[in-house]
Nucleic acid binder design. Structure first.
Lengths: 216, 216
DNA sequence: TTCTTTAAGTAACGGTGTTACGTAACTGCG
DNA sequence: CGCAGTTACGTAACACCGTTACTTAAAGAA
């Protein structure tokens, strides 16, 4: 009927509803019509505020990266940079497991009806790696890693983490080699691969385990 | 009009058309109607032969795993098992880069309209890892890897490879740290992480590079 | 030849993203 | 205060999607 002028920013209401829909029903449940129904508006609201479903999803992805960044930032640097890296790995994985569909959308694992992120969106999350890069630099400075490009080492760890999380969310890692087992093996292997001593890596792993999963 | 009884197995024609559509237009271009048009049939053909889009896609995924397995099998075992592992890594990545949309569907990175693989489908590709497991066992027997579970080490490498390929296909790996750079660093890091000596890993890497990418 | 089975087509249903168009409310200016 | 312009929304439609009754025609068996 009459356009109801109640919003306080219908845009944010749409975003919240979209996040809830995505979390509760997965990517398939996030449609313009259900979104409109959830906020008591019409489907055109999506277009006046975002210009289409793509941009709305893009906004959600940005928020997702921001939340990931916040979570990674809660991991404080200690005197054991390798343990710090592992703690960052825990934070990364915990964030993904807390919001599986969002993670899958962020990294393209949920087509969301043929929509695609722009180039800029994909690299938008790059700053998220910074804490990891710093930790690598500290580990290298302490002589625990072979000298090399810290960003390359960090990116390598990110790649492996994404592989694990992606396969875990997809349900590809099963029984005796379940995600937890793989994750532990992967973390230690990554550090040894970067140059750390296996025993020291194991000690750092034990240390990182103790300060598990800082809350979002 | 009249049902034309011409097929020689309309089913295979549908599969071929589906593979072509997927490769040329991506997951979004693969619809029942375009599929039907491509083979000159009606959309019901998909249902009489596959019982729905899901099963048709499932069949394509199985074929994709079979092709991956064939490609991995062309990597012959040599006296340098670490180089063999790296060659298997090349084969894995080359296969994915040859059929990007198919790879993304195989590993859930393309929702294909809310359809999902069954549990069995996801683990169907598991046998593909066997050549890798064998190579790990040989490397361990030669003392180049720390003693441990070969399947866990192989799965760890698979996870990292998938992370790289997945991010590469998604366009997340850019400029100074492009996929090729990351891939090389990753391969060597993986071997060192499993216990190999850095120098020996570098030598094996050079050896693997020389026998690059056996053809599908 | 007739009967049964099977594969295909037709047409529809409900759902999707998107858009043209109308309309009501707010905003700024005189 | 009142009038224009802009903006935000709803309505209704379009084209497309997967899926499914229902029907029809062909193939094989007796």
């Amino acid at each position: 009927m009459s356009p109801r002028r109640i919003d306080p920013t219908l845009a944010t209401a749409l975003l919240e509803a979209a996040a809830r829909l995505l979390a509760e029903e997965g990517a398939a449940g996030l449609t313009t019509r259900r979104l409109a129904a959830a906020v008591g508006a019409s489907t055109t609201a999506v277009y006046t505020h975002f210009g289409g479903m793509d941009n709305l999803v893009r906004a959600m992805v940005h928020e997702g990266f921001a939340r990931l960044h916040r979570r990674m930032s809660t991991v404080r640097a200690t005197t054991d940079p390798v343990a710090d890296m592992m703690a960052l790995g825990y934070a990364y994985r915990a964030n993904a497991l807390d919001h599986p569909p969002l993670y899958q959308v962020m990294f393209g694992s949920a087509a969301l009806g043929g929509f695609a992120l722009a180039d800029g969106d994909r690299q938008h999350g790059r700053y998220t790696l910074q804490p990891l890069v710093d930790a690598v630099a500290r580990a290298t400075a302490q002589g625990r890693f072979r000298t090399g490009d810290p960003l390359l080492v960090a990116q390598n760890m990110w790649i492996a983490l994404h592989g694990l999380v992606s396969l875990e969310l997809g349900g590809y890692l099963i029984e005796p080699y379940d995600p937890d087992v793989c994750f532990e093996a992967q973390l230690r292997s990554l550090m040894v691969g970067a140059g750390d001593d296996p025993d020291q890596a194991a000690a750092s792993y034990a240390r990182a385990r103790r300060r598990r999963s800082p809350r979002a």
